[in-house]
Structure formats: C-alpha cells, structure tokens
Design a protein around this nucleic acid. Structure first.
Lengths: 229, 229
DNA sequence: TGTACATCAGTGAACGCGCGTTCACTGATGTAC
DNA sequence: TGTACATCAGTGAACGCGCGTTCACTGATGTAC
C-alpha cells in the first residue's frame, strides 16, 4: 500500500494553511495561533509550512493583508448599483462593514483587535492594505460631498490636528469636515462592532440582536451629515 | 551576612504582583502575561505567587476587577461638583473615560480588548464589576433625562431588542431612548479610544493628537441629545 | 531575659507541555534521453 | 517504452526555550512559657 503524497490531500497547501489558521484564530484567538497547531489540523508536520511562509510572522502578515483585502472587496461590491442614492450607499457601506466583521470575527480581530504579542506588523506591507480598505469608506463620503449631498457648514471651527494629518498624508483636497465625518463614522461603527464581538453588549441571556440598535445609530449618523436615511 | 527576607523588599506582595503584572501587560500585551515573568521582575520565584493567587487565571480576574473599579472610581470623582450643568457632567464623563483609557491602556485592553487566550472570565465576578462602571455612565444620562434636559422624542420608533434587554436586566424605568443614547455614546467613545490605542488613527508621523477630534465628537453627541455643549 | 516551638512566606528542583525553527533525509514525481 | 537522474514537497528528530503548577524544604519571625 502506497501512502498518498500529502500534496494530494491539500492541492493548494498555502491556502489551506491560511484557512486553517483563520479557523484556529476563530476558536482560540489570534494571540495563541501556532504553526504546530495548524500542522496538526492539516495532518502535516510543522516544518512543511516553511515551504510557503518563511516564518510565523510572515504567515500572520499574509493573514492581515488578506483580511484588509477581503474587507475592501466586500465594501466595493456593496457599492455597486448606479441607482443608489448617496444616503443608500453610505448606509449599505456601514451595514456591509458590520456584516463582514460579524461573518469574519477572526479577521476583524486580527486587523482591529489587540495586537498579537511579539508580532510586529511590517508597516510597508500592512499600511497600504489598511489604506486600501479605509479609502473605500472615505470614497463614499467624498462622493456624496462632491455631489453636494453633505451638510458640512458649522461642523468644524478649525481643523483638528488628526484630521489635518490625514489630509496631508493622502493629499485630500476636499472639505476637512468630510474627513471628520469619515473618522467619526468609522469610530462609531467600529465601536459598536467591537463591543458586540467581544461580548460587552450581549452579556445578557445571549442571542440578543444588535441589528436595530445599529440601524438607528447609522440613521443618526446620516442625519448629522445632513442626509436623510 | 544575613539575606533579608523577601517580604521586606515587597511589604505588600499581592499589590506588587498586580502592579508588576500591569507593567508587563503594558509592555507586551495581556495575552503574553506570565507568572514567571512577574516573578523574575520582582526577584522572587514563581511559586511564591501561589501564596496570594491560586492560579494565573485568578490573578487575571483580580486585574480585571481592579480595572473596572479603577474606571468606576475615576468616573465618580469626575462627576463631583454640584455647580456643573448636565451637559458639563456628560462632557466630563466622556473626557474622563478617554483619559483613563489613555493613562491605563493595559487595563483598558484587559477589559475591552481581545480576550486572553485560554482565559475564561468568571462572569459572576467580572459581571458586577463591569456593571458597576457602566452604571456610572448611564447614571449621568439618566439624571439629565430626569431633569428634563434630554430630547428623546422621535429617537426611537420602537425599542431595539438590545435596548429592551438592558431595560429588563437592570429594571430600568426611564425612557428607552436614554439607554439608546447611553449605548451609542459608549460605542462612540470606545470606538475612538480603541482605534487610538491600537494605533489605527496615529499611524502617521506619530504623536498626532486626537484631542480636538474627540472634543468635536462629544459635542456632536450632546447636540444629538438636545443639549448644547 | 532566655529558650523551645509553631507558623508560614518564599525557595529550588522537578514535572510535562507546546512552541518556533534547523537540519539532513526520503521518496514520489516529472524530465531527458 | 524503458531507464537514469534531478527536483523538491514533506518528514522526523532534534535544539533550546518558557510556561503553569506541584512539592518537600528552609529559615526568619513571633509566641508561649
């Protein structure tokens, strides 16, 4: 009896490694991810992983980049459809962001959660990936503003330091208030999603839906921007 | 030469253990906290810790309870002063919450960050501690509402499931919109603080202040509640 | 004041474990002739 | 079609490490007489 080559069981091993890693992170958290656990799960030996990822940190970096790209792609798809109003587009981006996080909690915690101990993300790789997904969110607001759909008067007395930093970094030539809105909306959505994912909202009987609470908050967000949801 | 007893070097060893633990969490993250590292730092041996904490998990639980209590106490102090208006009280609670988080990032990540792998918080201990600090925040809003300072008309068509769960759990007899406001404000503040602490806002030249961005958001929050900041 | 003794905080060795990473290797596969 | 050989993905043993926890112990301190 000839034992089949392992490759036969995992035609695309690098992908299988990453998928298994995501599964393990979902179970035990990103901090306790280990190459040996991945290998055990895949029924290969740990050194085999080194054929595809030079070290554990490189695997983690690949997972982070994948996560940012997945979020970005999901957001882009949600914006398709020319018939949508600006309010609808913003609304659907917000919903999509939350839904993506709820469906991929392990990836959300990987990019927005507490950093993994002893892992230092190489900014020249994760930076652009992060900017890619964030720029989609900003893009929706910017488009709405350029179409004159956003009320920005009186939002800012002067430009906050952080908003200015963003403007400088990305050479943004629109209204600073759009950046303020973008960062505020992001914080609001992230705040809800983060509390939700870590069980701070639902320490109740369990299975309490956050959906309608979230919808109301997004509507309030749109109202603040001068849009009707 | 008689070697002094270790107890002489650490008159209050349980406290010293917790302080050292907080220091190590600040350095390397809560996920990598180890009894041996604490002992090393204190120049004692690891088993000595077992005289005060029956296991690593019990130490972590103590740290979490301490964190919640510290946050609660800090919030309570910030509310003192009868001369303050409701808007001022809410504003100062928000500021205090953020400042506490910035001054104690290790404790903030302990209670609101990604859970520590293989640690399961005993809800009967951490639950009341969490409720204690959260009820201070809710208390400020509730007081403002009872004084008629909050505009709650039209905020809720119907009561979201999660808001109702809170009302049931804490037998709240006020306006459900107050709970909606409380949870929304908490999410907004937590969102900003969380992004700030994890470096998602300040991946810039570094040292970019979030202060005025935050102030504007709190003011917007007050405006939404019908208060002028 | 002096002696015998109980207390108990902290020690040091040891346990079994899982980890990332290295290394020389094996053996199935594909290629060249 | 058949043989010799190069390739290279995956193996298995080994390394040095740090971890939580247990255990019998030591030795300074406080107490009783």
């Amino acid at each position: 009896m000839v034992r089949p080559k392992q490759a036969d069981q995992h035609p695309d091993l690098p992908t299988a490694i990453k998928e298994t890693a995501r599964g393990l992170i979902a179970e035990n958290g990103a901090a306790s991810l280990s190459l040996r656990a991945i290998a055990r799960e895949l029924k290969i030996t740990a050194p085999a992983i080194y054929n595809y990822f030079p070290s554990r940190d490189d695997l983690v970096t690949a997972l982070i980049v994948d996560a940012y790209n997945s979020l970005r792609d999901t957001l882009l798809v949600s914006q398709e459809g020319d018939e949508k109003s600006h309010a609808e587009r913003i609304f659907s981006s917000a919903r999509t962001y939350r839904n993506w996080a709820l469906m991929h909690p392990e990836e959300y915690s990987l990019i927005f959660g507490t950093p993994i101990p002893n892992y230092h993300a190489p900014m020249e790789i994760t930076g652009p990936a992060a900017a890619g997904s964030m720029s989609v969110l900003l893009g929706v607001l910017d488009a709405a503003w350029r179409a004159g759909a956003l009320k920005t008067e009186g939002v800012l007395d002067s430009t906050p330091e952080m908003v200015q930093a963003w403007i400088d970094k990305f050479s943004y030539d629109g209204d600073p208030a759009v950046i303020q809105f973008a960062m505020a909306s992001w914080a609001q959505i992230h705040g809800i999603v983060s509390l939700e994912l870590n069980g701070h909202y639902t320490a109740f009987p369990k299975n309490v839906s956050v959906d309608s609470f979230f919808e109301i908050e997004i509507r309030a967000m749109l109202t603040r921007m001068g849009l009707k949801g």
